[in-house]
Amino acid sequence: MIRLRAHSCAPAPGQLCESPVWDNRTGELRWVDIRGGHIHRAALDRAALDLTHLATVSLAPPVSAVVPCISGSVLAAAGDTFYRIDDDGTAMPIAVIPLPDDGIRRRLNDAKVDPHGRLLAGTMSEEGVQGSAALYRLDPDGALSTLRDGVTISNGLDWSPDGTVLYYVDSPTKRVDAFDYDIATGTFSNGRPFARFDHGEPDGLTVDGEGWVWVAVWGAGQVQAFDPDGQRRAIIDVGPSQVSSCVFAGPDLDVLVITTAAEGKAAGEPHAGRLFVCVPGVVGLQATPYADVGLVRSDGR
Rank of each mutant, 00 (worst) to 15 (best):
I2W: 05
H7W: 12
S8H: 15
P13E: 08
G14L: 06
C17F: 06
S19N: 05
R30W: 11
V32F: 06
R41C: 05
A43H: 06
A43P: 06
A48R: 14
A48Y: 13
A48P: 03
A55C: 13
S58I: 02
L59A: 00
V66M: 02
V67R: 09
I70Y: 13
S71A: 11
G72M: 09
A76E: 01
Y83D: 03
I85V: 06
D88S: 06
P93N: 09
R105T: 06
R106N: 06
L108A: 08
D110V: 00
K112F: 04
V113K: 03
R118Q: 04
T123F: 01
S125H: 12
G128P: 05
G128Y: 11
R137D: 05
L138P: 00
D141F: 08
V151Y: 00
T152D: 10
S154R: 00
D158E: 05
D170G: 00
T173G: 02
K174G: 00
K174A: 06
F179M: 09
T185V: 11
T187Q: 07
T187G: 07
N190S: 09
F194P: 02
F197H: 02
G200V: 10
T206H: 02
V215S: 05
A220E: 07
A220Q: 12
G221A: 08
D227L: 10
R233M: 08
I235P: 01
G239P: 02
A249P: 03
K265P: 15
A266I: 11
G268F: 15
G273R: 14
C278P: 08
P280S: 09
P280N: 07
G284E: 10
Q286T: 13
A287L: 04
A287N: 04
P289W: 11
D292L: 14
V296G: 10
D299P: 13
R301S: 15
